[in-house]
Simulated assay, not measured.
Amino acid sequence: MSTPIDATLWREAMGGFLTGVTVVTTTSGGKIAGTAVNAFSAVSQAPPLLLVCLDRASRSLEAIREAGFFAVNVLSEAHMDVVRRFASKSSDDRFRDVQYTTESTGAPVLSGSVAWFDCEVYAIHDGGDHEIVVGRVLQLGSDREAAPLAYHRGNIWCLTGRETEPAGRS
């Protein structure tokens, strides 16, 4: 039998992994919903699939289930002032002063994002206290000039500067 993992140590260790910062959005019942998510990954290129992990108690997860679609917005420096609002448990006024458009599904695509993915729900899987939502990408966009945000040990950083040569190339 394995020893139970200490929750505080778990959060500290996982916080050591540098991740991007995304906001997952949708609309359901005439209301917009969105939440910050750092558990985001590509799954497949053909068909184009990605995944996000959402807390089972998340109102955004409930809205995504009802709507059947969502958008993933990779946040940029332009979102530094609103990222904490999307990360908070309170959903009051998250979209205040946030510019967005919509694409084919109707989910909000945040203006100024580094990249965005407009998705239909492909599958939802059990993930312990979270659910793993797999989305089939219907449309996407990218802004190579936007500086991305990163999350590390409870802090949000803006990644700016010149690009370096990819590993393995000379």
Rank of each mutant, 00 (worst) to 15 (best):
Met80Glu: 13
Val72Tyr: 10
Cys53His: 09
Pro47Ala: 08
Glu66Leu: 01
Met80Phe: 09
Ala67His: 05
Phe17Ala: 14
Phe40Val: 01
Phe40Thr: 00
Val23Glu: 13
Leu61Gln: 10
Thr27Met: 07
Asn73Glu: 00
Ala42His: 09
Phe69His: 13
Arg59Lys: 13
Gly20Asp: 13
Ala39Thr: 05
Thr35Trp: 15
Phe40Arg: 02
Ala71Leu: 11
Met14Gln: 13
Pro47Ser: 05
Leu75Lys: 12
Glu66His: 04
Glu77Gln: 12
Pro48Ile: 01
Met14Pro: 02
Ser76Ile: 01
Ala78Asn: 08
Glu62Lys: 11
Ala71Pro: 07
Gly15His: 11
Ile32Pro: 10
Arg56Ser: 11
Cys53Thr: 01
Gly34Pro: 00
Thr27Asp: 11
Pro48Gly: 05
Asn73Ile: 00
Ser58Val: 04
Pro48Asp: 10
Phe17Ser: 06
Ala57Arg: 15
Val52Pro: 02
Ala67Arg: 07
His79Tyr: 05
Ile64Thr: 06
Glu77Ile: 00
Val24Lys: 04
Ala46Asn: 08
Glu62Thr: 14
Glu66Tyr: 04
Thr25Lys: 15
His79Gln: 07
Ala39Lys: 05
Leu51Arg: 13
Ala39Ile: 04
Ala78Ser: 13
Gly30Trp: 14
Val23Asn: 06
Ser41Lys: 06
Ser58Thr: 02
Val23Gln: 06
Leu49Phe: 05
Thr27Arg: 15
Leu51Ser: 13
Val72Ser: 10
Thr27His: 12
Glu62Ala: 08
Val52Gly: 02
Val24Trp: 12
Val43Glu: 10
Leu49Trp: 05
Thr22Trp: 03
Thr26Arg: 00
Pro48Lys: 13
Gly68Arg: 10
Leu51Gln: 10
Phe40Asp: 00
Gly29Asp: 03
Ala67Asn: 14
Thr27Val: 03
Gly16Lys: 15
Thr35Gly: 04
Ser28Arg: 11
Gly34Cys: 03
Ser28Glu: 10
